[in-house]
């Protein structure tokens, strides 16, 4: 009989399993604390003081949001209230949201809450992707707010007969099968006017989240960085 070596000793492997699992778990928990601190929702103060947050305050709906190249980071980032020229937000330029640009923190939070609830209850994620996760039957909604389709040159405002992005979106959400763009249509989900407002706020807020440059080349059909 050969001499017993550690490598063929069950107890050795049992202990390795316990130690490695423990170590990986502790590291994960530690990283979770760090990540949570970085992705907690920001405050209105932050926006006013020009503090960039990965997930800004719901009052970001009062600002103009764009998605622009940051040379420093090498990819697009959400720009809130104007660009300082180097890919950092200025938090200056406002934008009307349903006729107002002075939504208070409380009001905006309530709107976002309604919108987030709506996104779950209406099951958006089982057709669309949000932040790239969900189903693949319909377009990604991560930056839907910034989609040229809804902008002044896109087709949706004319089709819904509205002249702002938020109203066009809200109208579409209430009667999606009335404004089809393709044979594959969004069904009527019984979304009320109030819920639609919340959902649009939710989408606008989501477009301001720093997603490390996902999706790449958004909306730059011709000027794609690597496009030929």
């Amino acid at each position: 009989m050969a001499k017993r070596s550690v490598w063929s000793d069950n107890r050795f492997w049992q202990r390795s399993a316990a130690w490695i699992t423990g170590f990986a778990s502790v590291l994960l928990i530690w990283l979770t604390f760090d990540t949570m601190a970085q992705i907690t929702i920001g405050t209105d103060e932050d926006l006013k003081n020009g503090v960039t947050k990965r997930v800004p305050s719901p009052t970001v709906i009062n600002y103009k949001i764009t998605y622009e190249m940051s040379t420093k980071r090498g990819h697009e980032v959400p720009i809130i209230g104007g660009n300082d020229g180097q890919g950092m937000s200025l938090f200056q330029e406002k934008e009307m949201f349903f006729g107002r640009d002075d939504w208070s923190e409380e009001e905006a939070t309530e709107l976002l809450h309604l919108g987030k609830l709506g996104s779950q209850v209406k099951n958006c994620m089982n057709c669309h992707t949000l932040l790239g996760n969900g189903a693949y039957y319909a377009p990604d909604l991560t930056k839907a707010w910034l989609d040229p389709q809804w902008g002044p040159n896109g087709s949706m405002q004319a089709m819904t007969g509205k002249n702002t992005k938020e109203e066009a979106m809200a109208e579409f959400l209430q009667n999606p099968s009335k404004y089809p763009t393709h044979a594959r249509m969004m069904p009527n989900l019984g979304i009320t006017a109030e819920e639609a407002k919340g959902l649009v706020a939710f989408l606008k807020h989501m477009s301001s989240i720093d997603t490390n440059g996902f999706p790449r080349n958004f909306g730059k059909i011709e000027g794609a960085v690597h496009g030929k």
Binding site: K72, G74, G213, H226, G227
Partner: peptide
């Protein structure tokens, strides 16, 4: 801020 030398998810499309 992130050091620019960290990997960037950028690959040439034809690759």
């Amino acid at each position: 801020m992130i050091d620019p030398s960290v990997i960037r998810p950028e690959i040439a499309l034809d690759a």
